Amino acid sequence: MIELKSPAEIERMHTTGRFVAQVLTELGDLADVGVNLLDLEHHARKMVEQRGAQSCYWDYAPSFGNGPFRNVICLAVNDAVLHGLPHDYTLLDGDVLTLDFAVGIDGWVADSARTVIVGTPADEDLRLVRATEEALAAGIEAARTGNRLGDISAAIEAVATGYGYPINTEFGGHGLGRTMHEDPHVSNRGRAGRGLKLRAGMTLALEPWLARTTDKIVFDPDGWTIRSADGSRTAHSEHTIAITDDGPLVLTERLSHPAAPTSA
């Protein structure tokens, strides 16, 4: 069942989204050569506690996970892309780091992810990150009343395939609002003009993620961290949006802090 949100409820989600954006901006700026993933996790915990927010990840226990998740942010490095379990790892020059963060404030949730390149970026990594960002922007642009869910998916797919990257369909975007995962599922591949009709009041997390040379995934022994099956590097971009009569509204929009230099 899809719950349409009122303008007042969307604004409450926007309040949460601004905080999510603040955390991802700050942590992305902190991610540097010599920084440990656990330091980023602890910084995120402090921000969550100070804001009085509720982590959507702490005690999260879906069917695919290995016990409850006991962290407030997902941190994934290089060939890891989703549900990265923070651990004792010190970032190296050229590492590709994905940060994925979701919290609730006063009962309303927002979810967002960004990929940053630590230190000196490689051209192929810049290109991969840029592809996910452009795919996300295309998906957001398609999220308009009267369009179909397949229009969002097709827009994301067109950018990814235009860059020559394969697309995994096991994990994708989703509805959200009072909880982190609600209907509908939003695939990163689809057919325009097909699927659920988009209506004002729908709130969605769109999240194109890509691996450079495969659409297959594997799980780490920790039961959480998802990697590209062939070890190729990955990237992930995500925003929470609201569909309104005036067009899509990005609820987790960050200040102008690019993930990496745009020249490649």
Rank of each mutant, 00 (worst) to 15 (best):
L206Q: 03
A205Y: 01
V118H: 02
L126M: 15
D151W: 10
L99F: 05
I140P: 00
V103T: 11
E134G: 04
L97T: 00
F101M: 06
L196A: 11
T214F: 01
E141Q: 09
N188K: 07
T98V: 15
N188E: 06
A135N: 03
A158K: 07
G175P: 04
D95Q: 08
L149Q: 02
P166A: 13
P221Y: 02
W224V: 02
E124T: 15
S187L: 10
P184V: 14
T98I: 13
V103W: 00
T115S: 09
R189M: 12
A211C: 15
K197H: 08
H87V: 07
D111L: 03
G195I: 06
R227T: 00
T145Q: 13
Y89H: 13
S153D: 12
E141H: 09
T115I: 01
A122T: 12
E182S: 10
L97P: 02
A160L: 15
S153F: 12
I152R: 01
A192E: 02
D95W: 07
R227C: 02
G104L: 05
D93M: 07
N147D: 08
H185V: 12
G193D: 03
L136F: 02
H181D: 13
E141C: 06
L204V: 10
L149C: 04
T225P: 04
T120H: 13
I152V: 15
P166R: 01
D100Q: 11
M202S: 11
T90P: 04
D111P: 02
A102H: 01
T132Q: 01
T225M: 06
P221C: 09
G193L: 10
G94F: 00
Y163D: 07
G119I: 08
E207N: 15
E170P: 05
V109F: 03
T98A: 13
V159H: 03
A229K: 09
T214K: 09
H181C: 11
T115Y: 03
R130T: 12
P166F: 14
E182Q: 15
W224S: 04
I152N: 01
P184E: 05
T145I: 10
H181Q: 11
A110I: 05
R191L: 12
D106V: 01
S112C: 14
K216H: 13
N168K: 07
T203N: 15
A142P: 00
G223P: 05
G223L: 14
R194M: 14
A138F: 08
A122W: 06
W224K: 02
G172C: 10
G162I: 14
D183V: 06
L128T: 01
T169V: 15
H181W: 09
N188D: 13
R148P: 02
D100K: 11
P221F: 04
L198Q: 05
Y165A: 05
G94K: 06
I105Q: 04
T213Q: 12
V103I: 15
L204S: 06
M180R: 11
V129G: 01
A200T: 10
R114V: 13
L198N: 04
D123R: 11
T115W: 03
L176E: 06
V116F: 05
R130N: 08
R148N: 11
A102S: 12
L206G: 00
L91I: 05
